[in-house]
Amino acid sequence: MEPCARKRTGKHNAELVEAVFRLMFEILWVAPYDRRRGNAAWREFDLTARRAVVLLASTDFAAASPEQLGTVLRTAELLVRCIGRFGQEHLFPPARCAEALAQARCVADRVREAAACGTEA
């Protein structure tokens, strides 16, 4: 088999990736023509969520270094802070903000647990 054909195609942390996708495309979805897309909080959330998906999908928590786990954890915590700003700026109804915040905290907690297990070993 050629080296390029042996590329690793498996994704890690599918549940967490799915949770972030749900945040992006179900709970906090904004149409392309919506004026909220111009808001700085929305842009920061969009970039952070995309980065979180890439990091979660590419990081094997069991084999990751403490630095890698720290990067994923910081990104997950930034995602929580971004969603917290939505409530302050009234970009979404309070119920949607609360649902999104709960889901983002769940993702951050799972990453925090993985980071704690990685540093104990």
Rank of each mutant, 00 (worst) to 15 (best):
R74C: 07
Q88N: 02
R35H: 08
A64P: 06
Q68S: 14
D60C: 01
W42L: 09
P32Q: 11
E67K: 15
W42R: 03
F45C: 10
L55C: 03
R50F: 03
F25V: 15
R37G: 02
R22G: 04
E77C: 15
Y33V: 10
A63N: 09
D34I: 01
G38N: 13
I27K: 07
T59C: 09
P66E: 15
D46A: 07
Q68A: 15
A49L: 08
G84D: 12
G38S: 11
T71Q: 14
M24T: 14
A57K: 05
G84T: 09
F86I: 03
V30A: 08
V80R: 04
R74V: 00
D60K: 02
G84Y: 14
T59R: 02
L56A: 09
S65P: 08
F45M: 11
P32E: 15
T59L: 10
I83R: 03
F25L: 12
V54N: 07
H90E: 15
G38E: 14
P93I: 04
E26P: 00
F92Y: 14
R22M: 07
L23V: 10
L28R: 02
F25I: 14
E26T: 14
R85Q: 05
A40P: 01
W42I: 05
G87K: 01
L56G: 06
L28G: 04
V72C: 05
T71F: 10
Q88P: 00
E67L: 14
V72N: 08
R51Y: 02
A62N: 08
E89M: 04
G70I: 09
F61W: 10
G70Y: 07
T75L: 11
A41G: 05
A62K: 13
R85F: 01
R85P: 00
A62E: 14
R74K: 10
